[in-house]
Amino acid sequence: MKPLCFVALGDSLTAGIGDPVDEGWRGWAALLAEGLAAGEGAVREGVVRFHNLAVSGSQTGDVLDRQLPVALELRPDLVSVVVGVNDTLRCTFDIRAVAARLDEVYAAAGRHGAHLLTACLPDPGAMLGLPGALARPLARRQRAVNAVVHALSERYAAVHLHLADDEWVADRTLWSADRLHPGERGHRLVAARFHALLAARGLAAGGPPSCEPQLPSPTRSASLLWLATAGTGWVARRCTDLLPQLLTLAADEVRHQVRGSSARLDLSATHAVTAALAALTVAEQPDAA
């Protein structure tokens, strides 16, 4: 009997950051893999082949150009694609380009007969507690990415998980000290929620991953210490090219807020998403014009 092949694509979330095991990272995808087939130790026994190709810092372009070709060579039965936050932290952010890349990745997985797993994500500004004028532009970008992921997940009949809801974001016991990646409890919850969706479609025959962590959740003091030390460096590395633009976006945010016209910014972002998805439809039907 051919082993079930699960390939995980994405960034640091899927790479397992926040869930340390044996001097490395485990993460939700590895936890999920163990519950895809009946019996104990499905991955260890070779019943499930699991390949985690996710790399910390990856953007949608990295998934398309570097991770996807490797994934397709593995002939996967199941492919997870969870990515997009790092795109929002770059001055080159373009929702139309993000949509085109994700559409190509999702379509390729489908053409090769793989079931697709996707997720929407919380915005980093809210997670880090940035001031409103700085956080709102990032939130608007992440909402745009999530809207694209929602639409394309429906188009390709993906198993889609909502990870941007307020309850998930507000529960600090789910997050690691960096406040940007799930801790062990959070990774276990993501795995369990994906497992429930897969089981409902008959795609997971094993038991669900336990939601009980083996390590304690980080204390508030540990989170504050990370933000005051390593967190500053993380933001600096991720936002070096974005900062000048983000300050301009924040100034624009303040101007609209003073004029009472902030709704225009949201409307403009909505129109950009609509145009990005419409462009995909046109691209799929070149003779439509």
Results as ranks from 00 to 15, higher is better:
14 T>V: 03
10 G>Q: 06
177 A>P: 04
17 I>W: 14
167 E>C: 04
102 L>I: 13
246 L>Q: 12
212 E>N: 00
91 C>W: 11
114 A>L: 14
81 V>N: 07
132 G>D: 14
121 L>R: 00
67 Q>I: 07
275 A>N: 02
97 A>H: 12
72 L>G: 02
80 S>T: 12
267 L>D: 14
252 D>C: 10
198 L>I: 11
260 G>K: 00
70 V>R: 11
235 V>Y: 09
103 D>L: 01
198 L>T: 07
104 E>K: 13
178 D>W: 00
152 L>M: 06
81 V>E: 06
37 A>S: 09
122 P>G: 12
117 L>C: 13
256 H>S: 06
134 L>V: 11
93 F>Y: 12
195 H>K: 09
6 F>M: 09
250 A>W: 07
77 D>C: 08
60 T>W: 03
171 D>T: 05
196 A>H: 11
271 H>C: 13
230 A>M: 14
216 P>C: 06
238 R>Y: 08
264 R>E: 15
71 A>S: 07
232 T>K: 15
196 A>M: 05
226 W>M: 08
147 A>G: 14
129 G>N: 04
216 P>E: 02
261 S>A: 15
168 W>L: 15
207 G>D: 12
276 A>Q: 03
147 A>D: 13
70 V>L: 14
286 P>T: 14
193 R>T: 04
195 H>V: 05
101 R>Y: 00
250 A>K: 06
251 A>L: 09
183 G>D: 05
214 Q>S: 15
171 D>R: 14
174 L>P: 04
69 P>I: 11
231 G>H: 02
235 V>W: 13
37 A>V: 05
178 D>M: 05
198 L>F: 07
177 A>E: 15
265 L>S: 08
16 G>E: 08
14 T>N: 00
69 P>Y: 07
120 C>T: 14
157 A>Y: 01
121 L>A: 03
89 L>K: 00
205 A>I: 13
134 L>R: 02
84 G>L: 11
38 A>D: 09
162 H>M: 05
153 S>I: 00
144 A>T: 04
191 A>V: 00
18 G>V: 06
200 A>R: 07
179 R>K: 14
123 D>L: 03
180 L>A: 07
